[in-house]
Simulated scan of single mutants.
Amino acid sequence: MLLDIAVFLAVLNVKKELNCSGAFKAVTALGNIAVGLASLLLMIRAVAINASKKKYMIPLAVVLGANWGTLLHAVSVADAVWDPQSSSCSPVGTSRFKPNVLTSFAADCVFMGVSFVSLLRKEGLSRLWRMLYREGLICMGVATVAYLVPSVFLLLNLNDIMNYMFQPFASIVMVTCSTRMYRELSEFLSPQVLPNPAISTLSTLEFYKPSSRVLRPGMDKSMAVRVQMETTTATESTFGTTDYTQSGDDSSSLHFARP
């Protein structure tokens, strides 16, 4: 998407006549590849939430294939001509982008809708569930607003410029939304390690049951319990002060008299 924006701005700032049709096809191809990959991320999330079940995977894959088909069709029909008055490229026939925009809108809504409904059916209180629920709710609202505007203008079909004007905006919003969801989930599953973390371990208890064999007279009829202390270490803090360090391995035996 960044490459698409760079090429788009370069084409807009060219003051000499160039092959506008080829340039516009390149801009459309880069943008549609980014949108298609964003839809792929949304589909993977929907499949993963449903544990990769085939009854979800196959229909969602079909929807993704239809979306990619319309994206490729948009590249083939993209066209622009040189406008001497404005000294810039002017897109033509943008009403032919209608299947592309409407199908992408429907596909992304299907992916996010499946994820959202699946989360509601598996309602929980974990931090991961809350994060996925919040991300899904926000992304559904953002995608609806982003795609609704260009869809309305395409259906109205006022002119070529108005038909195309909001499509780059919708593409940027969807790519940003889907990649932000992926990055937030990645950061949640792989949290950053603090520069000087305190290292602590859990203590363990080991219980020794008395032997079942017959004891000779004078032997201690008790049960030994060993308590083992693990090491806890705190390193220098980020504020320049040094915390105390305490470590050790202590083993002791507690004897409980048998009744």
Rank of each mutant, 00 (worst) to 15 (best):
A6C: 07
V11I: 15
E17G: 04
S21L: 08
S21R: 12
S21Y: 06
A26P: 02
A29Q: 13
A29F: 10
L30D: 11
A34D: 03
V35G: 01
L41K: 11
M43I: 03
I44L: 14
R45M: 08
A48C: 09
K53F: 06
K53D: 13
P59M: 02
A66C: 15
W68I: 09
A74K: 06
V77S: 14
V77N: 04
A80L: 03
V81P: 00
V81A: 08
S95I: 12
P99A: 14
V101S: 10
A107D: 00
A107Q: 06
D108F: 00
D108L: 11
C109E: 12
V114R: 00
S115P: 00
V117D: 01
S118A: 15
S118D: 06
E123N: 02
L125S: 13
L128C: 04
Y133D: 05
R134M: 11
M140C: 14
M140E: 05
A146R: 03
L148P: 01
N157C: 03
Y164R: 14
M165A: 13
P168S: 11
A170T: 00
C177Q: 11
T179M: 06
L189Q: 11
P195K: 10
A198Q: 09
I199S: 01
I199L: 07
S200R: 07
S200F: 03
T201H: 05
L202P: 01
S203I: 07
T204I: 08
T204K: 08
K209H: 07
G218F: 01
G218W: 04
M219N: 14
R226I: 08
V227S: 07
Q228K: 12
T232Q: 11
E236L: 13
S237D: 12
S237F: 12
F239N: 05
T241I: 10
Y244P: 12
D249C: 05
F256H: 05
A257Q: 05
A257C: 07
